[in-house]
Amino acid sequence: MGNSNKINNHIRTLRFHCGEMTQQQLADMVGVTRQTINAIEHNKYSPSLEVAFKIAVAFDKPITEVFTYEAL
């Protein structure tokens, strides 16, 4: 759960493709704070599976298109 995690995401790009959706709008859809969305977006925090799914649902994408895991 730190900066060294291998979980990456495409939230910034997906927000752009959703008409420049703001972090606050996404946070409201997911039910977390804007600061948490910002931390996830910058790979400073790995969300729970539930929040990860909620983010994927917010973009109407499968979870694998939002989050990627870099295996060793």
Binding site: M1, G31, V32, T33, R34, Q35, T36, A39, Y45, P47, S48, V51
Partner: peptide, 10 residues
């Protein structure tokens, strides 16, 4: 007031 979410609780 913001929501208290999982990150804040952790």
């Amino acid at each position: 007031e913001d929501t208290v979410d999982e990150r804040q609780r952790l």
